[in-house]
């Protein structure tokens, strides 16, 4: 893990003596955010200049001065008839699919992973099956999903589910197996049994890995749904981009790309925040010691 004071986030030497400790702490906290904004401003400027000087073809890569107002004004409905997609609808659809698929995946994976870790006969029987499903790329399920469930939400959710379920099951089983036997024995000798042993010891001991699993698999789910939407499930952000391509509307394509990036980033930060809150003991000691 990176030290708390990596060069990019620490206060520069010129700033430290003059600023009161309170302000310094606040500045230190804002610093990563500031440098983040700065990096994007630089990129946007370069892009703008590139487009203005026609080094970049503005027809293929419309500059931010075109795309941003386009997004703010709210891209009109694109497409015709039943294939019509509006921007807001696309976002909501994609997010809902990711969320539902991920939650269903978790609901299935955590109990199954637990059983795999604990009940040996089940493990012998089921583990090879899960291990076979895990490496299949989520997109590979798209034709199956469409054949089985059509081109609606169910298909997208199915693709997300298949994309994360097996991996999360394996990760859950591994997390539980990695709890040291001695820790369990210590808890048992102190009188913990049954559901209390699980709730008070195994769950918090595995919580850091479980939350990391959720975070990593959010990305997997996000990729799965976009791939699915581009490959035939005709709605959502993925479909919006394909539609932009078909209509030679590069503003729409850029809008889709930027939206996907910003949303993915924001949600990842949100999960990170929740992770820090839930794992308060890890966040706290990181602040006080060097690891």
């Amino acid at each position: 893990m990176p030290p708390a004071d990596s060069p990019s986030t620490s206060v520069p030497a010129w700033a430290s003596p003059a600023i009161a400790p309170f302000a310094r702490g606040r500045l230190r906290r804002l610093m990563p955010g500031l440098s983040f904004v700065l990096a994007w401003i630089i990129l946007a400027l370069a892009w703008e200049i590139g487009a203005a000087t026609e080094v970049l073809n503005p027809r293929i890569l419309p500059p931010p001065s075109v795309v941003i107002p386009y997004i703010l004004q709210g891209p009109g409905a694109a497409g015709i008839g039943p294939q019509q997609v509006t921007y807001g609808e696309a976002i909501v659809k994609t997010l809902a699919r990711v969320l539902i698929g991920l939650i269903l995946g978790l609901i299935a994976a955590i109990p199954l992973g637990t059983v795999l870790a604990v009940v040996n006969p089940v493990r012998q029987l089921i583990l090879p099956m899960i291990q076979t499903i895990a490496p299949i790329a989520p997109v590979a399920w798209v034709p199956v999903a469409i054949a089985l469930l059509g081109i609606g939400d169910q298909s997208a959710i199915f693709v997300v589910f298949m994309g994360v379920f097996a991996v999360m099951t394996l990760a859950t089983a591994a997390a539980i197996e990695n709890v040291p036997q001695e820790l369990i024995k210590t808890a048992r000798s102190l009188g913990a049994r049954g559901h209390r042993l699980w709730l008070w010891v195994v769950l918090p001991a595995t919580a850091p890995s479980l939350l990391t699993i959720v975070r990593v698999n959010f990305f997997a789910a996000w990729m799965a749904v976009l791939a699915g939407e581009m490959a035939g499930i005709n709605s959502g952000l993925g479909a919006l981009i394909i539609l932009g391509q078909q209509q030679f509307n590069m503003r729409l394509v850029m809008t889709g790309i930027i939206t996907i990036g910003v949303l993915g980033f924001a949600i990842d930060r949100l999960i990170l925040l929740i992770q820090r809150r839930l794992l308060w003991w890890e966040a706290r000691s990181k602040g006080r010691t060097n690891g």
Binding site: P180, E182, L183, T186, A187, V201, P204, A205, A207, L279, W281, E282
Partner: peptide
């Protein structure tokens, strides 16, 4: 190993 509960 102390086996203390890290979260307590």
């Amino acid at each position: 190993h102390h086996n203390l509960f890290e979260w307590m």
